[in-house]
């Protein structure tokens, strides 16, 4: 069974901060990381592969990432975490893609790989949209299951998953091929192994550009994106209010008074 994982390289969380003086978002360093949600997707893919292999079935994990050449680092890290193959979709023509064009481009890459299952994180921590996973499924006409918290069973034709939704969990059985987006609850990602790290260093990373994907340029990047950013600005800055100190019973009483004042009680 062929398994694919889509990952995104995002700025390390601690790197992006708000600068009240210039009223802008400030990137404090150049450190990047694999989008944390994608780590759960990768872990689930590797675990699925390991389970299949333990049952004597052939399986491999291919990780696909769209991004600048620097996103190679994210793919190497994916190898250290258990990926077998890595593909970087990189081309200037991909730049400025919104979720429509991003899922279109990733979809073209995935079509060449023909995986049975595609794992994605539920969203990226920079964009926070959660639209790319379902978008890919639509572009390549795969079935989809979003917010998956557990894989209950898997055979050659279908997969049964438990989805985390507002009011509880939905258990559903879906035909392959499928795109699955996962929530954090699904597993606890492993840390890189020594062999994995050594493999990562040597790993060959395949790069596909627009020509390799035989992609119409008008559907790529900024040109292919229906949405445009009109303005970027800083959110209203939240200031801390008064801080009360004292004995616990005094504080409890004061807090009670506050809740009354706010008409909560």
């Amino acid at each position: 069974m062929k398994i694919a994982v889509c990952i995104k390289q995002v700025p390390a969380t601690t790197e992006v901060k708000f600068d009240p003086e210039t009223n802008t978002l400030v990137r404090e360093g150049v450190d990047s990381q694999i989008n944390p949600f994608d780590l759960y997707a990768l872990e689930e893919a590797v675990r699925t592969k390991e389970r299949l292999q333990a049952d004597g079935e052939e399986s491999s994990v291919t990780v696909v990432c769209m991004g600048p050449p620097q996103a190679q680092d994210a793919l190497r890290e994916a190898v250290a975490l258990g990926a077998d193959e890595t593909i970087l979709l990189s081309d200037r023509a991909f730049g400025g893609a919104d979720t429509w064009a991003t899922s279109y481009t990733l979809g073209l890459g995935l079509k060449k790989i023909e995986p049975d299952i595609v794992f994605c994180g539920m969203q990226a921590i920079d964009g926070d949209t959660g639209q790319v996973g379902p978008g890919i499924a639509t572009h390549i006409d795969y079935a989809q299951a979003t917010y998956v918290a557990k894989i209950e069973s898997l055979d050659k034709k279908k997969i049964t998953v438990k989805r985390l939704v507002e009011n509880g969990y939905e258990v559903c059985s879906v035909k392959l091929p499928i795109v699955i987006t996962v929530v954090k609850e699904i597993n606890e990602p492993r840390t890189p192994s020594l062999r994995g790290k050594m493999n990562a260093k040597k790993a060959q990373i395949t790069t596909w550009g627009a020509a390799d994907l035989e992609a119409p340029v008008e559907k790529l990047g900024l040109s292919g994106s229906p949405t445009q950013v009109a303005k970027v600005f800083s959110p209203p800055h939240r200031e801390g209010g008064e801080k009360s100190e004292g004995e616990p019973d005094e504080l409890a009483e004061k807090l009670f008074g506050l809740l009354k004042e706010l008409e909560i009680v």
Partner: peptide, 23 residues
């Protein structure tokens, strides 16, 4: 922007080839 809305509006937008802004 519920789990449902976030899951399938993206699919609708792709099918309609139009933009979707999340959240």
């Amino acid at each position: 922007a519920t789990t449902q809305g976030r899951s399938f509006m993206s699919q609708v937008a792709i099918k309609a080839y139009t933009g979707l802004t999340a959240d």
